[in-house]
Nucleic acid binder design. Structure first.
Length: 277
DNA sequence: AACAGCCCCTGCCCGC
DNA sequence: TGCGGGCAGGGGCTGT
């Protein structure tokens, strides 16, 4: 489940590996991954384009193809792979772009949840605006964030996962941020104190930056474009540690569901506070 | 406006 | 061994 740090590593990998390459052939075996335009138009437009840049916003990858651009979201298990063209195509590979250097850029996605949107690059700003993403975690403004919490009754974890509030945080890092800030994941957002809100802002930036420095987290299937795993999983305090002792107080970590999502926290360090009026 | 519910998919795990 | 059912889960969409 790639989140911001993993998506950024993918971006870097692609930049190193295929920047400047030109598309000489194309095969799209699961058209639904292209949500715009039609498969036929997609093929016609892509042939001959040169990859001129790679960007990222939140968990979205941005491919600059000169006159055209993509926004690509990997969702749960999407991967971009760069492989020699003569290597056999895996059954979960849904798009193959042959490049002019004898290699392929391939989109691989077991669950077929990921999406690619193609549009004229002149529309990039409006396409990004349409996503209505919140700031990158390290750009969060403490006042704005606290104001958003005050008008939401949702569990605080679900607010951290809301891409309109802050972009790039997913299930793993949400648990880590809440653990460090010592907040119960189900604490209603509008009952989070100003101090705790500030702590969330602080740790959101810090956890994501630390994870980026370690090349992201590999839990199930994430790898970068070279097939390398991340290194942050050794640093995880909460996610995936249900039943194991809390690194701070040794109390066994507890696993619950918050808005259909598996959530691990320390029942002693992260206590639900009573609402005050 | 906020939020709940549904849908997309497949691999994996469980019980029988 | 084979099979059916349940589960996981980000985000887009609809309905309230």
């Amino acid at each position: 489940m790639p989140e911001l740090p993993e998506v950024d590593r993918v971006r870097q990998g692609l930049e190193d590996l295929v920047l400047g390459a030109r598309v000489t052939g194309l095969s799209l075996s699961w058209p639904k991954i292209i949500d715009q335009p039609s498969p036929e138009e997609f093929e016609t437009i892509m042939l001959g384009l040169r990859l001129e840049g790679l960007g990222r916003r939140g968990k979205y990858l941005i491919f600059d193809w000169g006159e055209w651009a993509w926004i690509s979201h990997l969702r749960m298990e999407g991967k971009w792979l760069v492989l020699p063209s003569d290597q056999a195509v895996d059954k979960h590979t849904h798009l193959v772009l042959q490049l002019d250097d004898g290699r392929d850029l391939r989109y691989h996605d077991v669950r077929k949840f990921g999406r690619i949107r193609l549009f004229p690059k002149a529309q990039l700003d409006e396409e990004l605006a349409r996503l209505n993403l919140g700031p990158e975690p390290w750009d969060l403004d403490a006042d704005t964030f606290y104001q958003q919490l005050q008008r939401r009754k949702l569990a605080i974890k679900l607010v951290l996962l809301d891409q309109h509030v802050v972009a790039g945080i997913g299930n793993i890092y949400a648990d880590e941020i809440l653990y460090r800030a010592r907040l119960h994941p189900e604490q209603p957002a509008n009952t989070v104190s100003r101090i705790k809100s500030n702590r969330l802002v602080h740790y959101a930036g810090k956890v994501i930056e630390e994870a980026m420095a370690k090349g992201g987290t590999t839990i199930r299937s994430y790898t970068d474009a070279l097939g390398h795993s991340g290194g942050f999983q050794q640093t995880l305090n909460a996610y995936g540690r249900a039943g194991l002792p809390c690194p701070r107080c040794q109390t066994p970590m507890k696993k619950i569901k918050v808005g259909q999502r598996g959530t691990t926290f320390c029942p002693r360090c992260q206590v639900l506070k009573k609402e005050r009026r």
